[in-house]
């Protein structure tokens, strides 16, 4: 009985999301008596496999290293995973609910002819999970009758597992083949010295109220004083103020930092879905009727163009 977690990595190190998916896997293991293994798939990803081997409390690391898996394209990776699931008697296949996990896992599930349970926030037992639906306005408890459970994990709902101190064996897997359906062309990765949105302890986000991308430095200056990540509402992204990877919400990134500061954001259902599990929420808005105040621990009715420079000064 193997509970297999697909590691997210950049060929060198494991990404933070993996630690959260591992936690969910460990909870399943505690319920079912299965053992957790990690899969590192990619090309020239030996360093990432070494990092994975240092994860404590896992049975082994499966290393699938081949040219066809270089960009982890789902057309090539999904069939390889199907073989692995069968060969390793996998009962639960997990990945973090990142764009990578969301892209890959349903393709694997369909090839296995099983359902996927998306974005779980709680493990009830080996078959039963809780997941948010309707932008988090309801929580569904669902039970799977499939022989293999394919699951994506909402990272904010599970603590990060320890990633170092262990010494697991690495088992090298068969060469994967190229399905010849797709090719990777390029990637434009947003560069920033600030913390990543999904792992930041503090986030300050701007919405349509920011009026233009040129005003985002007002937020960034505050962010840099307190080591915060910068996020945005859909309106700010759609208007071209900031890039798409900064969108927080139902259909963007889900975050739950210790402190979330929403500036010039009205608080639509879809935005709240992405941040309402933050520990402390602050809203700065000039409209005291804005729904964001309904979820804020501290609300400040103010013009952001006055409040932000003052905030920067006082921090």
């Amino acid at each position: 009985m193997t509970i297999l977690v697909i590691a997210e990595h950049d060929n060198q190190t494991l990404k933070a999301a993996t630690a959260h998916a591992l936690s969910a896997a460990k909870e399943i293991a505690a319920q079912t008596g299965g053992e957790v293994s990690l899969l590192v798939a990619g090309h020239n990803c030996g360093a990432a496999a070494e990092a994975a081997a240092a994860v404590p409390g896992i049975a082994k690391v499966l290393l699938a290293d081949s040219a066809a898996l270089a960009q982890q394209l789902p057309e090539n990776l999904a069939p390889a995973l199907v073989s692995l699931v069968q060969a390793q008697a996998v009962t639960h296949l997990l990945a973090a609910s990142t764009t990578q996990g969301k892209n890959l896992l349903p393709r694997v599930a369909a090839l296995l002819d099983v359902a996927q349970v998306s974005d779980i926030t709680e493990v009830v037992d080996g078959d039963t999970y809780v997941r948010p639906i309707y932008a988090g306005n309801a929580l569904a408890t669902v039970q799977s009758s499939d022989s293999v459970k394919v699951i994506t994990v909402r990272t904010t709902a599970f603590e990060a597992a320890e990633l170092s101190g262990g010494q697991a064996a690495v088992a090298t897997q068969e060469e994967a083949s190229d399905a010849g359906l797709s090719r990777f062309i390029s990637e434009e990765v947003s560069q920033s010295d600030r913390p990543e949105l999904t792992s930041a302890r503090i986030i300050i986000s701007g919405g349509r109220g920011m009026q233009s991308g040129d005003n985002f430095p007002l937020l960034e200056k505050v962010a840099d004083k307190i080591g915060a990540a910068v996020g945005a509402s859909r309106a700010a992204v759609d208007s071209g103020f900031v890039p798409n990877d900064m969108q927080v919400g139902q259909t963007g990134k889900i975050v739950a930092p210790d402190l979330y500061i929403a500036v010039g954001i009205s608080g639509a259902i879809q935005h709240l879905a992405g941040m309402k599990d933050s520990k402390v929420i602050v809203a700065i808005n000039k409209d005291d009727e804005a729904p964001i105040f309904g979820v804020a621990d501290y609300g400040l009715k103010a013009d952001l163009f006055e409040a932000l420079p003052e905030l920067e000064q006082l921090l």
Binding site: L181, E187, P243, D245
Partner: peptide
Amino acid sequence: TREVDGGLQQVGLK
């Protein structure tokens, strides 16, 4: 062009 967590990715599909 795909919206991914890190930014944008371009793939070519048959």
